[in-house]
Amino acid sequence: MYIRSAAAVSPQASFEALFTGAAGYQGEQLSCIEPDYTSYIDPKLIRRMSRIIKMGTAAAVESLKAAGLEQPEAIITGTAYGCLADTDAFLSRLVEFKEELLSPTAFIQSTHNTVAGQIALLLKCHRHNNTFVHKGFSFESALLEARTMMGENEITTALVGGVDEIIPASHALLRRFGLYRANGDSLRLVNEPAKGTMAGEGAAFFVVDTQQSANSLARLDALQTWYKPSTPNRVADGINALLAEQGIEWKDIDLIVAGRNGDTGDDALYDLFKKDIPETSFKQYCGEYPTATAFGLWLASHILHEQRVPGVEGLKPRRILLYNHYQQTHHAAYLLSAC
């Protein structure tokens, strides 16, 4: 499977901005830098869209534009939390108005598949449309479905994305679990391990294709997930097997893109893979959230295409291992090659 284009609405302005001055955030969370949506979406549609829908739709439109594709053969998204702002609005009114006088718009837009649905409406695309809601595997599930459909010759192109947003109510609930550090500094997140990480959000979309094209960013050679591995070594063994299946060894990996989030407990697992291979990480740019690997894949794809690594001088990687785990339960490894 080839990654023909990748676009993201994230806490960073662009891939280029990671070299000229990455955006840093203080406190508990990183928030998306939102574009002028009127250049992506009909203003008449914007008024009904909550932030996550606008973020997802803009990233999808940008990705399609970069790929030069008007109609994908499938639209597949992954989201753990879905459209939280609309869900919050709908449920709050349900309580406030004692289950009467409910706004239909918030109800309609509160479902997890709203982003994929809005993209389809915008494109007038009546093809396969699916959304996966599998916590830390939501994005991986979307990508795996695209790969499966391609393997069965059902499609040759797909628009695949991962989206999640932070709202005050969800953040307040998640912080009760002690997930976040109080006075975080995002750009130092990974370099200063401590208890807790910083929350993040974002929308990243990809046009994937069975065929390589002149502008393909990267080739996705393999993707594998492990749910609640019995021991950390099981993931290490799994990655070893993954490399063997591809006929390569660790020495063939030029760069590891790791999902380190600065939390000492979480980051200990990444140390299992220390193989004297250059490593970079991505959550200092996007924060921690269940579909953060979509941002990680966006970053890895652009690194391979542009042959530049933010924060690492002179490295021109041809093969990348992207490894991430979400709260030590959802582990995913992507093997990518330059085109």
Binding site: K44, R48, F97, E100, L101, L102, S103, P104, T105, I108
Partner: peptide, 17 residues
């Protein structure tokens, strides 16, 4: 104004509320 059927539902809610 270019409103549609979903807006009609919102207007019904507005009248009640």
């Amino acid at each position: 104004l270019g409103l549609d059927s979903i807006d009609a539902l919102e207007l019904i809610v507005l009248l009640q509320q």
